[in-house]
């Protein structure tokens, strides 16, 4: 099933630059961006670009993977606690699966996350995270 460009295009700032938002009323920061603040229910926001640095909160390696991701299997995914607060979930890259550990310092990189089949199939790029070289 060929996918339209629009749903991916709409997320370009999130996927390429980790742009979330900050509530103008209470200062809570969000990634992904929200329309209603979960802390104060405020609705006025300003865009906020996260640094892309944080630490590994948890991780796993997937062997049985969803359709569309077969060419990466098996691959590791993680939850990264960003330095600014929010958790973000992503595939992990440039990593030795056996050396992953909770608390590792991680950084965002831009990578291909999915490739659709066929001549008109999309190449979807976005964020992945890798360990920061010590």
């Amino acid at each position: 099933m060929a996918e339209n460009l629009a749903p991916n295009w709409r997320l370009r700032e999130q996927r390429y630059q980790l742009v979330g938002n900050v509530c103008l009323k209470c200062g809570a920061k969000f990634f992904p961006p929200r329309q209603v603040c979960t802390q104060c229910r405020g609705t006025e926001f300003e865009a906020f670009q996260f640094s892309g640095k944080g630490e590994l909160y948890s991780f796993t390696t997937l062997h049985s993977v969803p359709a569309g991701f077969e060419s990466y299997a098996p691959y590791s995914v993680g939850m990264i606690k960003l330095d600014e607060g929010p958790l973000v979930e992503a595939m992990l890259t440039d990593v030795n699966q056996d050396k992953l550990a909770i608390g590792m310092r991680m950084e965002m990189v831009t990578r291909k996350i999915r490739e659709e089949e066929g001549e008109r199939g999309l190449l979807v790029y976005g964020y992945k995270f890798r360990p920061i070289a010590e």
């Binding site: 997937l62 969803p66 569309g68 993680g78 996350i113 976005g126």
Partner: peptide, 19 residues
């Protein structure tokens, strides 16, 4: 933000279990 990043449902439960 979860499925589009290749994170399966078992993957979410696995990350919860490890933590």
């Amino acid at each position: 933000y979860e499925a589009a990043n290749g994170i399966s449902f078992v993957g979410l439960n696995a990350m919860m279990m490890r933590r």
